[in-house]
Amino acid sequence: MKFTIQVNEGPYQHQSSDTAYQFAKAALEKGHEIFRVFFYHDGVNNATRLTTPPQDDRNVVNRWSELAKEHNLDLVVCVAAAQRRGIADKDEAQRNGKDADNLADGFRISGLGQLIEGGIQSDRLVVFGD
């Protein structure tokens, strides 16, 4: 079965990103396909590589990056939500005249159409939020 997963909250503040991650991992272990993980609202904060959690805590951002690398996942960060919250890749930072970028490995920034496409192309859309 083909899934699109929507993550609406940032890491640490809410459990939604953790639950989404555990769901994605379990789905992949069962042989299902993840068409896309779409990060919206504060969920875009899952994509900053500047995250520095304490050593004894999970690294939510790296965990997504590693899962993406291992399974060739499409991790998409909504551009409009990302701009509001200061998440940018090199191109976005340059375009908006910012002096830094912070997008973590394995994530890409794109439009909301990617979420709708996920809904159309997947068998199931599962939303995690607050």
């Binding site: 079965m1 555990q22 069962k30 859309l125 939303v127 939020g129």
Partner: peptide
């Protein structure tokens, strides 16, 4: 467990959060 969550998402034709 999480695997059971995935199964429920498969068995049911859509999910509302």
């Amino acid at each position: 467990d999480y695997a059971g969550f995935v199964d429920l998402a498969c068995e049911n034709d859509k999910v509302q959060a």
